[in-house]
Design a protein around this nucleic acid. Structure first.
Lengths: 213, 213
DNA sequence: TAGATTGTTAATCGATTAACAATC
DNA sequence: TAGATTGTTAATCGATTAACAATC
């Protein structure tokens, strides 16, 4: 049987998010079926990896035809919880924090930004899109008021750990860390780190490697 | 011998960027030495992994003392090419693209954003920080003028592949893709993908998993 | 010196790929 | 039917961890 009780590995989860995006694009262009080979080609993977990954779902493909896009999307969504709505708070109303609030893609995909906070009193009260910047001092109250599920940390790197500590105290269980600093949390808290500078470094390293060959 | 001719694995490169950030923080607080164990604790790794990773460098630690922060930073920087200056162009002057231009962290770390482009004629000419938005039509000329090394794609997902194709034609060898869409490129071009929505999905999946236990 | 921490080898663990019987 | 594509098992590959002699 394809589905079983084993936890789906991290590596597979990351790819499932990519399959979901891809199948949504296919559906938008009215494609009804996709084979593991086509999927692999579009995402730079092997068809074997695709089939192996999709075997974690409770939807099965059909030999000779592949996977029905409607059902595949539904199944991946269900596994990832992509049908759920999440309430998010952004901490830090700098350029990055404000851009995230205004970015429309998140809301469309179930990630609703309900509040943006900053510790700078001069910023508090200013508008960002449909929101008003609130004070970090009111963090706990805002978490309750908006039933916040997760927070995006977009403060200066030096303040990242302190911010995380406060968030954890108020009961926030998930953090997306956009700062350069690694943050340490208890193991019931989930952190995903998203460091743009690290990505640029990785990119530049690989470019150097490529030209020196 | 620690250094050898073998290519450093991807996984190690990613961690080297984290070590570099960490050692820079230590240096800023005047810490002279760091052990593999301290480093591991700060970054949620094992000391074994840290020592294994650092053995790719041409700098050696000293038994009983650990690694000298000054030399460690220099050595990691050299391997990653973090001492070099890179000229970057941002394609797409939406909220995200404009925020990246205004973000000060990049310049400090050698990643200089020299231009921001948009295909929307109404945006062309408007200021973003010290830059003026230029037309995508002039892309090739701007790449030459600013000696652009790499580009950040921050356009709507649907335009990502077309944008990449144009970039490649003008000779840009490195791309940071901030859109949801996976892009396909020839194998002399390096792409790093940085999908915030995918990270949010990964985060939400892991949160669901954690609460259901 | 004694003990702590390194660099490296070997063992373990996990992820990817290959192969192929089942089947639509 | 014949052939293409699935799901799954086994083989391969690579990354992480454990262990320990060397050494400061």
């Amino acid at each position: 049987m394809a589905t079983d009780e084993r936890r789906i590995p991290q590596s597979v989860i990351k790819r499932l998010t990519a399959y979901l995006t891809r199948v949504q694009i296919l559906r938008a262009s009215n494609v009804k079926w996709v084979s593991s080979q086509e999927m692999a080609k579009a995402l730079d993977l092997t068809s074997s990896t695709v089939r192996q990954d999709l075997s974690h779902l409770d939807y099965y493909g059909i030999a000779k035809r592949g996977y029905e896009t409607v059902r595949l999307e539904a199944s991946i969504s269900a596994v990832l919880g992509a049908d759920k709505v999440w309430n998010i708070m952004v901490i830090g109303a700098g350029n990055l924090g404000r851009a995230l609030v205004k970015h429309e893609e998140f809301g469309k995909r179930g990630f609703h930004i309900r509040a943006i906070l900053d510790s700078d009193a001069r910023k508090v009260g200013k508008r960002v899109g449909v929101l008003k910047i609130e004070s970090t001092g009111n963090l706990a109250r805002i978490v309750r008021r908006e039933r916040i599920d997760m927070a995006i940390i977009a403060v200066p790197a030096g303040a990242a750990q302190d911010t995380a500590d406060i968030l954890i105290k108020t009961g926030v269980k998930g953090i997306l860390n956009m700062t350069l600093a690694h943050i340490i949390v208890p193991n019931d808290i989930i952190v995903v780190e998203m460091r743009i500078v690290s990505s640029l470094r990785e990119l530049s390293y690989r470019m150097l490697l490529n030209t020196s060959k």
